[in-house]
Amino acid sequence: MTARILIIEDEALVAMELRFVLEDLGHDVVATVADARSAREVVQETDVDLALVDIHLSDGPTGVALGRELGQDLGVSVLFMTANPGMVRGGVAGTIGVLSKPTDEAAVQKAVDYALRRRQGQPVLYAPPELQLFG
C-alpha cells in the first residue's frame, strides 16, 4: 500500500531521514515543508493522503492548529511526530495520534501503516505501542 505523504518538519536532517525511510517503504513523499503556510499551499495544489506533522515549526508552535485543519477540513489523515508530545496531550480533533521523537524506522513504518489502514476503512485490531492514539 503506497500513499502520498507530506512531511511537515522544520529540522532538515530529521525531515530528510524521514523522507528516505518513507521512500524505502515505497511511499511517495510529495513534499517536505518547514512551516504551516507552505503546508497549506502543498495541500491545496496536490492530493495528500497522510501528513506527518511536527508541532514546533519554523513559524512557531503552529503544528497543532495546522494538524487540526488538515484533518478536519482538508481530508488529510494526520499523525503528529514531535519531541514534545505533551503539547497534544489532550488530543487534537480530526487527527489520529502522536509518535514521540526520536523514533526508528520500525516505529514509523508501523504508525504509517496503521494510519493508512484506518484511512481506507480497513479493520485494524491493534495500534502500534509507540503510537499514542487520540480519543
Binding site: 529540522e11 536532517l13 531521514e17 528516505f20 514546533h56 521523537k101 526520536p102
Partner: peptide, 21 residues
C-alpha cells in the same frame, strides 16, 4: 530549552541514520 534538548536527540538520531545510508 526543553524543546531544544529533545530536538537535539532527534537530530543526532537522524544524522546517524543518514550517515549509515
Amino acid at each position: 530549552l526543553s524543546h531544544r534538548i529533545k530536538n537535539i536527540f532527534a537530530v543526532v538520531s537522524a544524522l546517524i541514520a543518514l550517515s549509515a545510508r
